[in-house]
Structure formats: C-alpha cells, structure tokens
Design a protein around this nucleic acid. Structure first.
Length: 554
RNA sequence: GCCCUCGUAGCUCAGAGGAUAGAGCGCCGGCCUCCGGAGCCGGGUGCGCAGGUUCGAGUCCUGCCGAGGGUACCA
C-alpha cells in the first residue's frame, strides 16, 4: 500500500522532471520500489534512474538527482537522497511514523488488511488426504499452508471458503472397505484374510472395533461385497470425525467436506461428460474414452473413462473442478497439493481450457514432503504400507503452535526434515515462543501500567515518540501489509513467520532501550503505552494469521 | 532416459535482478537497585562447480555434479 504510494510519488517525480526540462522526454518505465536491506538507505529505494540511463542518455547519478529534486512534498516523506550508482532513497518522516501508532490502534483487528480481492469468492481446497486412516505429519504441512493462505487471503479482501475433498470413490476406497471388513470379521472370530493389497495398518482394526461397538455383528450375515462397501462407508465417517478433531487441534476448520462419490451419485459427472462430448473434445481409443487435452496444450491426451467402464482419476478432477467453477461459481480456486502430484498439477491448465475456463483462475500450490527421522533413521510414510507418523502422535510431544510454526517457516519448495527426537528435545526453542513472548510481555506491561495509575493512555501524544527504537518498531508494524500482499501474490506463507520474528525482535529491542511505564514521566509513558498497544495489535494479528495463539501470559 | 524442485554459516533455514548476503539453533564472552532474562549486546570471509545475459546475478539462461520427487486406462 505505502509501497505503491511511494512508487506513484517517484513516477510523478520523473514526469515532473521531464516537464521541467531536467530530463529528456521519453516513455518512462514502471517505477520499481524496493525495501533497502540496510537502514542507512532509508525505508524505500528505487532504481528508476539506472533504468532510465539508456533512454535518457545520461549518467544514472545525474538522473537520480534530477528526479529527487522533483519528488513532491508529502506528510510521510522525511528525506529523499541519492546514492551511487544511482539509487534514490526515501526515508519516512519521524512525525508521520509516530502518527501511525494511532492509525494502527484505530484499525484494531483489521490492521494491515489490504483489499486485493474486492469481495470476490475464492476457495482454498487443502489437506484432502485420503480418508483411509489418520492424518500423518505431511498432512499437517498441507493444513498449515492451506489454512494460513485462507486467513491471509481473507485479510486481502477475498471471500474465502475452505474445503476438504474426500476421495471416497474408486479402487482405494474398495480396498479400504475390504480391509475394514476383514478386521471386523477377524475380531468376531471369522477367518477372513486381509485382501492382498489391503491396508495393513493397525488402526484399521480400531475402526472395525468402533463399528462393531456401534452396530454389533449384523454385518456377518450380509453378503461380503455389500458388507465391505457399507463398512467402508462407516469407517470413512469415523475417519472424517478423527480428521476433523486432529485438524481442530492445529486450528484448521473446513466449511465443507466435499465427497468425490457425490459427483457420480448426483449425475454431475455424467453431465460434464455430455458437455465435453457435445463439444467434441472427447474420443474413443482402445475401448477407453479420452479427453483431447493435447488440443489444449498438453503433450498427451488423458483417459476419462477406462476400458473397464470405470472413470479414471482424471475424470474426478474434471468433474470436481467443473463443480467448483461452473456449478458453484468461485472466482478463484487455490488447491494445495503435495509435490508428488506435480504431474497432475501440470495438467490442470489443459483441463481448465477444455472446460472453457481461464486457467489463471486456478492456482495449484505445490509443497514438498515432510521427511521424518526417528532414532536416526528415516520413517518412510505410507498408509498403504501402514507405516507413518500420525500428526496426533507428534502433537503429544510438540505444541500445536510450534508444529504450525515449523511447517510454515520453510518455503513450499523445501523438503522439511523433522527429526522427532530433536524436535521433542528442542520444542521449547521454537521461535514461535519468541513471538508469543513479545505479546505476553506487552500484556504484562499493560497490566503494570494499570496498577500504577496509567491504565488510561488514550490521551497520550504520539508526537513524543522519537526514539530510534520506537520508530523502528513502528516501521516493522507497517511492513505487515506488504508481507500479506507478498504471501497472497506468491501463495507463499513462509514469509509470515519470518516477519513475525522481525516484528517481535523490534519490540524486544524497544523494550530493552525504552522504559515504558514510568510514573515520573506520565506523558512519555502514555505515548509509549500507545505504541506498545499498537505492537500488541500487530503481533496478535500476525499470530492469528498463522493460526497461532497470542497468549497474555506464558 | 525425460520432466520438476532443491543445493546459502557447524546444523535448520530466509533472501522482491541492486548497495556491506541475514536469522534461529549450537559454541564463547558480557548485560538488570528498573515495566516478564522465554529478553538484550558482542564474537563468522558461507551462496555446489563452470560458463553466459546484465550497468549490476545467491536471484535469470546453459552445461555439469549432488539430493529429493514425478514420469500408468493407480489415486
């Protein structure tokens, strides 16, 4: 926001310099504004003079000086300077910065909101792990990414719906049902072997036992195929209950749990197929029905209906995304998938075009795997093999906020290595506590202030805030909007925890340098209490956007 | 084989084509008669290798090396 204002200011300065004859006339390029790494270089910098050197045929430094002279006065502009090889640096005005403390407090819970979505609808579909067993830690990464993106996109003005796609159709489901059926029968003394390619995990027996408790042994008399299907259905319902519970523990909630099977039951799939056939983008080959994705940019065609008559997995993707965009009419959809779906992700744009939809409306967030190490060896995770680390078990050892922070801090493309032994040992070192401690410390200061007769500081005059540490803290708070824009634009939530640490650091530094509550200096105290209160708002906002608690005490 | 991602400090990781590449952990040494020491300060020649593009490359391109993932009428 502020960044754009600064860019506009520089762009106007370029035009003004041209109008005054200080620069030759030419079409100026878009002005790029960056945040300098070093504080000596001010709050914002532009390289526009370097970019102009060629068209203007002048030395960058000369151009920079000319543009800098034409930067209009504004309340937020403190100083405009020029530095070799041609940077124009802008420093925010101290008085304006101090004034932002009141602005932050006025904004309250909506602080740093930035309207990019304009109220348009957006669906974030995430987790969507197969409902055939407990959620493993990789699912926690998906959950942290998806939920945080949903929160950030809401803060960015999108009307967000959160969805979990239940893969409750197809062959995996049949194997799951057969596995539950086998365990159910075994528990009741019948020797029904686990299917060859069934699920070997011990939890299958738990679900069988739960169904037995609820429904008794009546499925023993039901024809096995029918019983397996029904037990599968009931087990999925139980799994979903468990998923909802464990996801709730890491503060993820879903608006809808969308059943894949419903696409077939409702006839939605057949309707989409009819549309595609009518458009002539399907064809028969080798007894299967294909979608001619190669006509839409794909390097191959995709099977919709297998020669067996069963729909392939691509069929579900087609029908499901048709439902999202055409039936339900989302303006945008963000799907959060693990990197092992990279091929599927690559094909999505072709699917969109085949449906007559703009591929830009669909974003796929691919994140890399969570590699779990325990006892010095990697634990290969596979539900089908029955070996995996359940999120639930991790949460026994590590606090939910710490788990989220860990999952969020790495960029999506990084493999996360989770050493369980190390994590258990070091969970108190998790940086989330540094951020939360800042928040708790502020709350403590506010309590002390009230005890010492400074509980009402609304009349404090922020103009008294001039200390470098005070202004540095304000500067950090004001960055949050930029961070949100960045997270939303790149669908990269990892910027948030990094920013949170910097914000907390700015607060701790300020706290170290400046006495907040000082009855001998009531006016200064009231001004600083306002600043501290604003910092509380900012810290609470960041923590909430990451789905973490902002404790008043620790 | 082909495709995708990654390779930055002892370890785990940030880094919006710009200025002197940062943080956490670990290690060493300091800091409160005062609002929470889960804090603060100091201690460091690390961008896998080789070319290229650019006024400027950790960042973009090519090749190589190393790690992971993907390459079905499986989901």
């Amino acid at each position: 926001m502020l960044r754009e204002t600064v860019a506009d200011l520089f762009a106007a300065a370029v035009r003004s310099a041209q109008a005054a004859g200080d620069l030759p006339a030419f079409d100026p390029p878009a002005v790029e504004v960056q945040r300098p790494r070093s504080a000596e270089h001010g709050d914002f910098a532009t390289n526009v003079a370097m970019q102009l050197a060629r068209p203007a045929r002048l030395a960058p430094l000369r151009i920079a000086e000319a543009v800098a002279r034409h930067v209009a006065a504004a309340d937020f502009v403190g100083a405009v300077t020029v530095a070799p090889p041609g940077f124009i640096n802008l420093t925010l005005a101290d008085a304006w910065l101090a004034g932002q403390v009141d602005a932050v407090r006025a904004a309250g819970a909506g602080f740093a909101d930035v309207d990019l979505g304009g109220g348009r609808s957006l669906q974030v579909e995430f987790v969507s792990a197969n409902p055939t067993g407990p959620l493993h830690v990789g699912g926690a990464r998906n959950a942290a990414i998806g939920d945080t993106l949903a929160r950030v996109l809401e803060a960015c003005g999108w009307r967000v719906q959160r969805e979990y796609y239940l893969n409750d159709a197809g062959s995996q489901m049949a194997k799951f049902g057969a596995s539950v059926y086998a365990r159910y029968c075994q528990a009741l003394g019948r020797d029904v072997p686990l299917p060859e390619d069934g699920y070997p995990g011990a939890y299958i027996a738990d679900y069988a036992a739960r169904i037995h408790t609820a429904a008794g042994d009546r499925f023993l008399d039901v024809e096995p195929d029918v019983a397996a299907r029904e037990l599968g259905r009931q087990a999925v319902a139980a799994v979903v209950d468990d998923l909802e519970a464990v996801l709730g523990r890491i503060r993820c909630r879903f608006d809808t749990w969308f059943s894949e099977q419903s696409l077939y039951d409702s006839g939605a799939f057949e309707r989409v197929m009819r549309d595609l056939r009518a458009q002539g983008v399907t064809f028969e080959r080798d007894g299967a029905e294909w979608l001619a994705t190669s006509r839409f940019g794909g390097d191959r065609d995709e099977v919709l209906v297998r020669s067996s008559g069963q729909p392939g997995y691509y069929a579900s993707d087609v029908a499901y995304h048709h439902d999202k965009f055409v039936v339900r009419g989302f303006d945008r959809v963000v799907d959060v998938w693990a990197v092992d779906h990279q091929n599927q992700a690559r094909r999505m744009p072709f699917l969109m075009r085949a449906l007559g939809l703009d591929p830009e409306r669909l974003s796929i967030v691919l994140y890399d795997l969570v590699k779990v190490v325990e006892g010095g060896a990697e634990v290969k995770m596979s539900k089908r093999r029955g070996t995996f680390i359940a999120l639930e078990d991790v949460l026994e050892a590590i606090d939910a906020d710490a788990v989220r922070f860990m999952m969020l801090t790495r960029s999506n493309e990084q493999v996360i290595e989770l050493d369980l032994d190390l994590a258990r040992q070091q969970s108190n070192d998790n940086p989330v506590y540094y951020v939360q401690y800042g928040h708790a410390r502020i709350c403590s200061i506010l309590r002390v202030a009230a005890e010492r007769g400074l509980g009402d500081f609304d009349g404090g005059d922020v103009a008294r805030l001039r200390h470098p540490a005070e202004l540095a803290l304000v500067r950090q708070m004001l960055r949050l909007s930029d961070v949100l824009e960045k997270v939303a634009a790149d669908l990269a939530p990892h910027h948030l925890p990094h920013y949170a640490q910097e914000l907390a650091r700015a607060f701790h530094l300020f706290y170290h340098d400046c006495q907040v509550v000082d009855p001998a200096e009531p006016d200064l105290s009231r001004a600083r209490l306002k600043l501290v209160d604003a910092a509380r708002i900012a810290l609470a906002r960041v923590l909430d956007l990451m789905g973490m608690h902002a404790p008043e005490q620790m």
